[in-house]
Design a protein around this nucleic acid. Sequence first.
DNA 1: GCAAAAGTGTTGGTCATACACCCATGC
DNA 2: GCATGGGTGTATGACCAACACTTTTGC
Lengths: 241, 241
Amino acid sequence: MDFRKIANIAVDCVILRLDSGTVNILLTRRFLNMYNDRYPIIDDWVLTGNHINRSERLDEAASRIFKEFTGFDHSYMEQFLTFGNPKRIKNEKDLLWTKSRGTDPRSISVAYYFLLQSDKNIVENSNLKWFRIDKLPELGFDHKQIISRAYDNLKLKVMSEPVIFNFLPDKFTLNELQLAYESVLDIDIDNRNFRKKATGKSYIVPLDEKRVGESKKPSKLYMFSKDVYDRTSAKNYVINV
Amino acid sequence: MDFRKIANIAVDCVILRLDSGTVNILLTRRFLNMYNDRYPIIDDWVLTGNHINRSERLDEAASRIFKEFTGFDHSYMEQFLTFGNPKRIKNEKDLLWTKSRGTDPRSISVAYYFLLQSDKNIVENSNLKWFRIDKLPELGFDHKQIISRAYDNLKLKVMSEPVIFNFLPDKFTLNELQLAYESVLDIDIDNRNFRKKATGKSYIVPLDEKRVGESKKPSKLYMFSKDVYDRTSAKNYVINV
DNA sequence: GCAAAAGTGTTGGTCATACACCCATGC
DNA sequence: GCATGGGTGTATGACCAACACTTTTGC
């Protein structure tokens, strides 16, 4: 195996998770000082990402990075865009950072997004934190743009494929499912209509089990069956334009 | 401007066009001989593509390549996936080819697809030809896979956004529009239902003009209005899962 | 006058939307 | 016993799918 890094190609990961009705993103701190920790030259945030090894596939690099930062194996990953604008290096800080790392300032970044189930917890620290997507801190490079394109792409995916379940625990309630859709798409959904639609899907399988303790009235649990989904969803060509 | 090539990053273009009811793809010949033209070592086909310049954006490189090969400015371009498998170099020929070109055998390719209007003609020659997507010749590298992923992506796009018009001349008949959908999606569409739906869209604008000569009965012409489309299609969040 | 492509309407079923109250439990 | 989130039904309109014949022209 060839573990040398390719200096001008990086993989950046937009790691997403739902929490209390909003989309959250995992970021790492970018920190650089010259002489003294109290006067850093760079102190802001960036996406989790890294360079790739010479003998590594792009998606291998992405899942490796995901595992390094979260500790989990990913359940959903999507390569959505590659960024290669020579002006991705926005400013002095970005340039300084690439120099300090010895990487090519003209680098391209293959961007992935990952969905993390809400019952999988990560220990945050001063270098690794969740941020609400509507309250992002100062970000390095073009990472604000990368996040925004990831989110656009996710919304499209969520409306056409059953990826939302990757945000939820294996067993979930219909109200959790509804809230997940509402959070991601930033819309309100009528509860009765939603339940009708959801219970009508054969691949949203009711379990003989209730969740107790979380709310006053126990709530019925469901699971998503990929098998049933694959079997039933024969591609129907609907032109929605 | 820095016109040096970046040796390990390429842009590949899947250039698509509709012709007599099928999707066609523009390919260039890959030809290499050692001593004698009559005994080539390599003689197969690849996508139009090239390396990028150090000061060029990815989409600039892609549109430059499109223009070089077709002579036209593009009307629709989509970056759909980046390929970076170390095994993209399938065999002896691929390796030989990269050596003969002096490029890095571990290169990644940012892939775009382009749609060409059916009234824009390209002069074909022995090094540049259209091929039906269902009758592709022997292809170098992973280009068969790139084409297949491009086509998958196009089908999804066609069903959710008004990109089909980029295959048609500015003025088109409803039957041409229907045939375009049928060709791309490889389906049959009921003519009466289709016309009802199409004429119901405000952005498919009837013209006071008929096409004569092509068929016995003159046929009404229509145009697509992007303005009207943008104004009327307020994003409606329909969960189709 | 006939071949060839253009163009036209109705019906039944499915699915999305709008809308307001009762239920089971914890405290 | 009351606060909290869980859970339920009906009526209306929009849209999709199925289906066969007439119209206009070139030759």
